[in-house]
Design a protein around this nucleic acid. Structure first.
Length: 291
DNA sequence: ACCGCACCCTGAGCGC
DNA sequence: TGCGCTCAGGGTGCGG
């Protein structure tokens, strides 16, 4: 689910439900891949704490706590953070959703994929962290502690510049698409928006990074920023407050030019959109619009 | 330093 | 209905 726009949307949505509320207890699932801090320690560290700030670093969320410690969260591929009582339709499969009338929305109860359940001292709505594939991450950071994951992040993708991409790409033989996904170059770019930015910049995803011109880098940076901002404005590609009864996805869905549109006509020139695999990620592009 | 690839895990959708 | 296969918005760690 989450690239920069989805994580930012999550941050904005969840912040009001988190800030200033004291955690009375934390429930977790069993120790697993996603717990970089073991569940038992996590409970100990977070009980009694109050969240004083929530920031986004690339695709990471970093919660600041009242004892100066911090909680690092990553949503991986399928992570979701949401409050009790928010619509739970998007937690169900598309087929389950379609079968339900709006008034039949079931109340969400933590299931085996709900790895964190925050209960607050004020007795208000709980906050859940759910991740079916467990590619997400949960890490508690002691006051003043740093983490290599954060240290190696490049500048935020919303601040992308042609200069950064140009310099970072010199001498590199990887595909430019792979470079755009490198979080140490720019933090926050993911598979959808890399493809969308490359289309809008008119650059083929498999171009050797070191051969991309300065002018192309300028276009890629400008289009990346534009597409990310636009997606944030529409609430991201799949995370949104409102999910139509028919199970329709997020608003940015309709604005995608290439991602997951293989075989369909290019919205600009009508040529069939191609799909190829670059760096183990599916890539979508127009053979005519992208040189 | 760079590069390509295996791997972490679960579920949906498809063809047979 | 079930089986086997492919696919999925991410990141790490390994060997060459």
């Amino acid at each position: 689910m989450p690239e920069l726009p989805e994580v930012e949307t999550t941050r904005r949505k969840i912040a009001p439900a988190l800030l200033g509320r004291r955690v009375s207890s934390l429930a977790t699932t069993r120790p697993s891949y996603l717990f970089l801090t073991p569940p038992a320690e996590l409970k100990r560290r977070l009980q009694g704490r109050t969240c004083t700030g929530l920031q986004r670093l690339g695709k990471y969320l970093l919660a600041e706590l009242d004892d100066q410690s911090r909680l690092l969260l990553h949503l991986g591929m399928t992570g979701q953070i949401f409050t009790e009582g928010s619509t739970s339709l998007r937690l169900l499969s598309a087929t389950s959703r379609a079968a339900l009338a709006p008034e039949e929305q079931p109340a969400f109860t933590p299931d085996r994929h709900t790895h964190l359940t925050f209960t607050f001292a004020d007795g208000g709505p709980r906050v859940f962290f759910r991740d079916t594939r467990k590619f997400g991450k949960v890490l508690w950071l002691a006051p003043g502690a740093s983490d290599e994951r954060l240290d190696k992040l490049g500048p935020d993708a919303l601040l992308a510049s042609g200069q950064v991409i140009f310099q970072g790409s010199r001498g590199r033989r990887v595909a430019i698409k792979s470079l755009l996904l490198d979080q140490s170059l720019l933090a926050g770019t993911g598979n959808i928006y890399a493809d969308e930015a490359l289309f809008r910049a008119g650059v083929r995803p498999n171009r050797v990074a070191g051969k991309v011109t300065r002018a192309q880098c300028d276009r890629m940076a400008a289009q990346l920023v534009k597409v990310l901002q636009r997606s944030i404005a529409t609430g991201g590609s799949s995370i949104s407050d409102y999910v139509a009864p028919d199970g329709q996805d997020g608003a940015f869905q309709d604005e995608r030019m290439v991602y997951a549109r293989q075989g369909q006509p290019c919205k600009v020139c009508g040529t069939k959109i191609k799909r190829t695999v670059i760096g183990q990620r599916s890539s979508h592009w127009c053979p005519k619009c992208q040189a």
